[in-house]
């Protein structure tokens, strides 16, 4: 669980500002996200960590008042440029949300939806293979293989969240953004998701937003601390938690506020 030496960054942000209807939410954030490590964003509520996460796959586009400036690149390509197709971007940069949100469709359809709209499966057996592989990677296959036609919403909360991860994996993304993926789950389901994040590490660049500092320490190799819309400190998780350079980080880690 040590910090592997990052190669060239998968995604990098330079001087990113986000405002909602003129009110700034994020100021001048610059960060690199690499393939080899799980990156955790921590910080108190309202510090802008989720907002920043949503700029990475342009989910903020769905909010009319949101305005993003600065440069964000994926493999060196500017994701806010006119040449970037937002639909393709979101397939390459998948997202898992705070509250499990499976479609009110069958388990199979939940996973197959992404590959279908992107035309990733040539035939029915192809699609079945994609669904099986995705569910296996999400650690859900053994629990649902006999009831793929049941509704996705009939699963337990933890299973629903893993189904959402399988859905994100199914389109073969390069980056997976997780917005507090365990905050609606019980400790056992949380442990399963954390285990899953470990297993997915290396195959995908993973960014996890979390409120829970223990979780950040457990799952991530790199941690970014956000406060009041600013990136205060970014570095190896071990350093952030044992030897923070900034006073504010130290106060947050030791529980003075947050």
């Amino acid at each position: 669980m040590t910090d592997r030496v990052p190669s060239s960054p998968k995604m990098s942000a330079r001087g990113v500002n986000v405002s909602y209807g003129g009110t700034p939410a994020i100021q001048d954030v610059s960060i690199d996200i690499d393939m080899e490590n799980v990156t955790a964003f921590i910080g108190p509520s309202g510090c802008g960590k989720s907002t920043f996460l949503r700029t990475l796959n342009r989910m903020n586009d769905t909010i009319p008042s949101a305005k993003v400036t600065g440069d964000i690149t994926l493999d060196g390509e500017d994701i806010y440029s006119a040449a970037m197709d937002v639909v393709q971007l979101r397939a390459r940069v998948g997202m898992v949300f705070q509250k499990p949100n499976p479609f009110p469709k069958s388990i199979f359809e939940n996973v197959a939806y992404g590959p279908r709209i992107h035309g990733l499966a040539a035939s029915r057996p192809d699609m079945e293979a994609i669904v099986e592989r995705s569910l296996k990677r999400a650690g859900l296959w053994d629990e649902v293989k006999d009831r793929l036609s049941d509704s996705g919403t009939a699963l337990s909360g933890g299973q629903q969240q893993r189904l959402c991860i399988a859905r994100a994996i199914a389109v073969d993304p390069e980056v997976i953004l997780m917005d507090e993926p365990c905050s609606a789950l019980d400790p056992i389901a949380t442990a399963k998701i954390e285990e899953l994040i470990h297993e997915l590490r290396g195959r995908y660049a993973i960014v996890v937003v979390t409120h829970n500092m223990q979780q950040a320490a457990r799952v991530s190799q790199r941690t970014a601390f956000f406060h009041l819309g600013q990136l205060v400190e970014y570095g190896a998780t071990d350093d952030i938690f044992t030897n923070p350079r900034q006073e504010r980080t130290k106060d947050y880690i030791t529980g003075r506020y947050g």
């Binding site: 769905t62 971007l89 979101r90 998948g94 949100n101 992404g114 199914a170």
Partner: peptide, 15 residues
């Protein structure tokens, strides 16, 4: 219709 369903669909790259 819950916004979470919209988010889910957008996030897998639905137009």
């Amino acid at each position: 219709v819950p916004p979470s369903i919209r988010d889910a669909a957008y996030a897998v790259g639905a137009s």
